[in-house]
Amino acid sequence: MKTHHSRPGLALLTCALVLGLSACSRQDAQVQASPSVPWVRMVALEAAGGGQLLLSGTVRARHETPVAFQIGGRLLARHVDAGQSVQAGQLLFSLDGRDVAAGEQAAAAQLAAAEAALATAQRELERQRQLVAQGFVSAQTLDRFELAQRDALSRLDVARAGSAQTRNARGYTELRAARAGVITEVMAEAGQVVSAGQSLATLAQAGEREVEVYLPKAPPAPQQGRLEGPAGQSQTVQLREVAGAADPVSRTWRARYRLDAGSQPEAWPLGSVVRLSLGKPEAASSGQLQQVPLAALDERADGPRLWRVVDGKAEPVPVQVIELGASQARIQSPLAVGDKVVALGTHKLTPGMAVRELAR
């Protein structure tokens, strides 16, 4: 009787063991199947400007003139500092004029000697003409005295030019501003020996203003833009020039944009940093312009598209490519800014493919 009553319990135990083994097998199958679902890295869509390039620039004068002496010498005094406003004709630097004064005295002495030599040659020529008229000497002897007179006249011309040059040099010992403006830089100090033509300072002339920027890519550069100052003022600008070659260090291209003729120079202080928006905004037919990494674009026969993840499955989204950059693409899509799309490996995805988002 005891053995007969234990058979139902044995049967129940057997069923429980079978059910437990089957559940474990299903869990093992799920664990083995889960690694086959690929991970994908996601990236959020960002808003893109309508073709505008935003840069920081520096306000510069249209004409920036190096200031230099026309003669060399020892710098006696410096009368200006960097950042100082100057008027036309204002004294900037002075040279030691002792050597110039000595040269002027020497030139004056040479001029006096040349004048005396010419007077002597003329008197001798006149005396010889009288002797020829009286028949004491032949007419051929006049040639030698006429040649001496012409030589003395030439020496006088040289002496006069030398004297005028030394008088001019006396005026060159004082360096004055050719135009009104601002001294933006000073590169010399009193006591320094300078040479003719050596730049001692830079004069930013008053008047027209320009903005100097460095473009990240080669020309053609945007022809126009909008300038925004630190005080909230705004001004349109036009391209004036672009450097013929890229900077060897930064690999950028220097460009100058001039302000409109009606602008007030006082509103744009020299050296101030401003924000420059270059180019015209591009109007899209519909939707908002966005930008994504180039790797997120999937180019197939159906056209360019992005991939998003919906309920754990990959779903393609057709897009319109507006512009391709070095690392980013400007697009127009039905998605909103901030929506996440697959950033890498889009060429391996198929519609409805199970994927898992990789947490960043």
Score class of each variant (00 low, 15 high):
1 M>L: 09
2 K>C: 12
8 P>H: 08
9 G>H: 06
11 A>V: 14
17 L>V: 13
20 G>C: 14
21 L>M: 14
23 A>D: 06
26 R>C: 05
26 R>Y: 07
27 Q>I: 13
28 D>W: 04
30 Q>L: 15
31 V>G: 02
33 A>V: 07
33 A>D: 10
34 S>Q: 15
36 S>D: 14
36 S>H: 14
36 S>E: 15
38 P>E: 11
40 V>Y: 04
44 A>E: 15
47 A>C: 01
47 A>T: 11
50 G>Y: 03
51 G>S: 08
53 L>P: 02
54 L>K: 04
58 T>D: 06
62 R>E: 13
63 H>G: 00
64 E>A: 15
65 T>M: 12
68 A>I: 01
70 Q>V: 00
71 I>A: 06
74 R>I: 01
75 L>P: 06
79 H>A: 14
82 A>N: 03
87 Q>G: 15
87 Q>N: 13
89 G>I: 02
92 L>W: 04
93 F>W: 07
93 F>K: 00
96 D>I: 05
101 A>P: 00
110 Q>S: 14
113 A>Q: 15
113 A>N: 11
114 A>P: 01
117 A>H: 03
117 A>M: 08
121 A>V: 02
122 Q>Y: 00
126 E>W: 04
128 Q>I: 03
133 A>I: 02
140 Q>S: 15
140 Q>V: 08
140 Q>N: 14
142 L>C: 04
142 L>K: 05
145 F>W: 13
146 E>P: 00
148 A>P: 00
148 A>L: 15
156 L>N: 07
158 V>C: 01
160 R>N: 09
161 A>H: 10
165 Q>L: 09
167 R>A: 15
170 R>G: 12
170 R>H: 09
171 G>E: 11
172 Y>T: 05
174 E>G: 12
179 R>C: 03
182 V>D: 08
183 I>G: 01
188 A>N: 05
197 G>T: 02
204 A>F: 02
204 A>Y: 01
204 A>V: 04
207 G>Y: 06
207 G>V: 02
209 R>V: 02
213 V>F: 02
214 Y>C: 00
218 A>M: 03
223 Q>Y: 00
224 Q>M: 12
225 G>V: 01
236 T>D: 11
240 R>D: 12
241 E>F: 00
243 A>E: 08
245 A>F: 04
248 P>N: 08
249 V>I: 14
249 V>L: 14
254 R>K: 15
255 A>E: 09
255 A>Y: 09
256 R>F: 06
257 Y>L: 01
260 D>F: 01
262 G>S: 12
269 P>D: 06
271 G>P: 05
274 V>D: 07
275 R>F: 02
275 R>D: 06
277 S>R: 10
278 L>R: 02
281 P>A: 04
284 A>R: 10
285 S>L: 13
286 S>E: 10
287 G>M: 05
289 L>E: 10
291 Q>P: 03
291 Q>Y: 01
291 Q>L: 02
296 A>L: 02
299 E>D: 14
300 R>I: 03
301 A>T: 04
301 A>G: 12
304 P>L: 13
305 R>D: 09
308 R>D: 00
312 G>N: 08
315 E>F: 05
316 P>E: 07
318 P>R: 09
319 V>P: 01
320 Q>E: 15
321 V>T: 02
325 G>Y: 06
329 A>T: 08
330 R>V: 09
333 S>V: 01
335 L>R: 12
341 V>A: 06
345 G>L: 03
347 H>T: 14
347 H>R: 14
348 K>F: 08
349 L>P: 01
349 L>A: 09
349 L>N: 07
350 T>I: 05
354 A>E: 13
